[in-house]
Amino acid sequence: MDLDIIIGIILTVMALGAVVILTLWSRRIIERIHARSPGSLREIQKDIINGNGA
């Protein structure tokens, strides 16, 4: 197996993995914001992004 194939497989797996992880992460953020009712960016950052929320 040459180097191109190995790098290609690693890149493909990483790309697909990144898509899955970012999708699940985004979904989690959407549900958290929804559970607290949508708010301004400052409130969301305080509650969720900075880890003060559940």
């Binding site: 985004s26 953020i29 959407i30 914001i33 949508p38 301004s40 960016l41 400052r42 992004i49």
Partner: peptide
């Protein structure tokens, strides 16, 4: 929009 309208918008999603 993020830089200029921090408190003016009601967000349902903010990107990680």
């Amino acid at each position: 929009v993020r830089r200029q309208m921090v408190d003016e918008m009601t967000y349902g999603f903010v990107m990680p």
